[in-house]
């Protein structure tokens, strides 16, 4: 499948670079070179988001994962701006280490702990799209199975029972690990995440965190392009949002 472009509409993405981020260029490449969006890097010491329409917290090992994954990154100067941006309804995507940072920052509930099998996992997995009423999955089919790469040692999603029940009730779980046929089996869950959680959104639906890497499965030259569906959904959402804003003026 060739990722399609969104009818010429270009949105502005900011990829935050922390010391130790290592998927920042992947996100930049996927959004800028493959999907033809306007994308720029935002340095962790910056105190402005440069007017972007969406923020990406990329994967990697910010601050060497010292203390806990994402714990130190979340006190970076730029995170104050990211939190205000999210509070104002701005679209924020955290991938892998970015997901950990969003949890540490309190923008998403729960936490990512050590993989149940203790090892670092770097391979393809399947995730099931749990619903398409989110800004990040509108271009997918309900129950669609996406093939995406993971690369993490701490991706085991944990939250207390009450938080977990809330996530289920509010349809905040948008991706679960599954097998190639879409079944939620124990073997398909690579890291022990509760309820097979691979990705969630906040209650308002504008902040999303996921452990798999959509940006590494977007460029057709890498063969797997399911990640493009997530990024294109986000772009479409931003385009619609702009059109709505214009039509209400």
């Amino acid at each position: 499948m060739k990722p399609r472009r969104t009818n010429g509409s270009v949105k502005k993405f900011g990829v935050v670079v922390f010391p130790g981020s290592n998927c920042d260029h992947d996100a930049y490449h996927a959004l800028g070179k493959v999907l033809r969006q306007d994308v720029r890097f935002l340095w962790h010491k910056d105190s402005s988001l440069d007017g972007v329409d969406a923020v990406i917290l990329p994967g990697g090992f910010s601050y060497g994962d010292y203390l806990r994954g994402g714990a130190i990154a979340r006190v970076s100067p730029i995170m104050k701006e990211v939190v205000s941006f999210a509070d104002a309804g701005g679209i924020v995507i955290g991938i892998c280490n970015g997901f950990q940072i969003l949890c540490e920052a309190g923008l998403l509930p729960g936490s990512l702990i050590r993989n149940a099998g203790l090892t670092f996992l770097c391979r393809f997995v399947h995730v099931r799209v749990e619903h398409t009423r989110s800004a990040f999955t509108s271009g997918c089919r309900e129950g669609e199975v996406l093939k995406l790469p993971i690369a993490h040692g701490e991706g085991n999603y944990f939250a207390d029972a009450e938080t977990l029940a809330g996530l289920e009730r509010n349809n905040q779980i948008i991706f679960r690990y599954c097998d190639a046929g879409g079944s939620l089996t124990g073997e398909a869950n690579p890291n022990g995440s509760l309820n097979g959680i691979a990705g969630i959104v906040n209650e308002r639906g504008n902040v999303m965190g996921m452990m798999p890497h959509p940006e590494r499965a977007t460029d057709p030259v890498l063969r797997e392009t399911d990640g493009a569906k997530i990024l294109l959904s986000t772009i479409s959402h931003l385009v619609e949002k702009t059109q709505l804003t214009h039509s209400t003026i």
């Binding site: 203390l67 714990a71 130190i72 949890c103 944990f158 207390d160």
Partner: peptide, 8 residues
Amino acid sequence: KLLANPVM
């Protein structure tokens, strides 16, 4: 605020 994550 930093050293421990109350979630876990």
